[in-house]
Amino acid sequence: MKKRSRRRSFAAGILMGSALILVGTGYAVVSAETTPSPEPAVAAGSLEQLQLGRQLFLEGCSSCHGLQGEGIAADNATGGNGGPSLIGAGEASVDFQVSTGRMPLAVPEAQAPRKDVQYSQAEIAAMAAYVATLGPGPANPTEEQLNLENANIAEGGEIFRTNCTQCHNFAGSGGALTNGQYAPSLMNATPEQIWQAMITGPQQMPVFSNETITDEDKQNLIAYVEALKVEPNPGGLGLGRIGPVAEGLFLWTAGLLSLIAFAVWIGAKVR
């Protein structure tokens, strides 16, 4: 009994450790991938940062969101797509949309997909800081808020199954919504992005404010998702963790065909 409990805490340690490593490497990968231009050295909250943010905004965002971030109505006559107002969008929204590569939008589709990130960490921070000045909106989670050390994975699972699985699937693999829209997979989302998505409600996702799902709830929930990412498939191949359809597909292809191949071998004439 004693041995087992040690093993469990050890496993939890590994789980958390690897979660943190994963997050770290995730950040490293993201920022490594996305620094074509030299990193401009600007201090957070400084005037330079705001100026850089405004400049980047004017270059990359204003064509859809308006020069003052006031939004542009879609123009059916010219085929212009327009974009929503960013006044009150807050830094969390900008950070989420740009750090997941969803913005800037390349082609208007049913839904903006996750893509390669176009800006560096610092540039994103600058744009977020600038948009935050347009009107009060949701702020990025603090480091303390994102500290998952004391999170309870099991409680997070309860919150996940009550609020998230209906769209993102039981393992966070994503799922379909109406008219070609979808809830994306959570397997590439960082804890910060999950937090930002919950408080800003990007695209069709509803908002889960800090008053309904508290900081502690969010930490538990994110810890559960992080655990899902590293949770092994004890039974073997996971088949994408999308449920019985993949199992049926495997059965009818690899499974049944291999048995039929054996039957053909049995029936074949020997020379």
């Binding site: 009550t162 609020n163 408080i199 409600g201 509803p206 908002v207 889960f208 404010s209 008053e211 309904t212 799902i213």
Partner: peptide, 13 residues
């Protein structure tokens, strides 16, 4: 739940 707890576009079970 207080009404102000639920943000615009918010959902809760």
């Amino acid at each position: 739940v207080r009404p102000s707890d639920l943000a615009l576009g918010g959902l809760i079970s």
